[in-house]
């Protein structure tokens, strides 16, 4: 019984705290994925990403207002920088500049997307 519980806990925690390159926003309006200029993502290096935002049907979402925050929930602290979406690259792509991670571990990036009165939030999860 204990072994089963431990197995379940390990499985659950690895699911909860694992990296995902795509995520679905809370209300299901958008799918978010990203591509990092720094690959593999390592600590203490400032770098940029390209965020891809699509509808659940796979249509690119351009012209949205996109902002980002986040941090390490298990450490109870935020990001060490204030990254910003600086350019709408078109076809659902947005340049996100100024990301840096200063510790190894589990990070969450909260992406807020607003377009035509519709606002939704997604969480990008990554383990560094």
């Amino acid at each position: 019984m204990h072994k089963v519980m431990i197995f379940l806990l390990i499985t659950m925690s690895s699911t909860i705290f694992s990296s995902e390159t795509t995520s679905i926003t809370r209300s299901g309006y958008f799918h978010i994925s990203y591509q990092s200029e720094l690959e593999p993502i390592t600590i203490n290096q400032i770098h940029n990403w390209v965020l891809h935002i699509e509808t659940p049907e796979g249509d690119p979402v351009s012209g949205a207002k996109v902002s980002v925050s986040g941090g390490m929930p298990l450490h109870n602290h935020g990001l060490p920088t204030d990254p910003k979406v600086t350019t709408d690259l078109g076809r659902g792509k947005y340049k996100l500049e100024g990301l840096r991670f200063h510790m190894r571990g589990y990070w969450e990036l909260i992406v807020i997307i607003e377009i035509q009165g519709r606002r939704d939030t997604g969480i990008v999860k990554l383990n560094i």
Partner: peptide
């Protein structure tokens, strides 16, 4: 100057 441009502020 990315570090300065994207510098964080706030209570932390």
């Amino acid at each position: 100057c990315p570090e300065l441009t994207f510098v964080r502020k706030g209570a932390e």
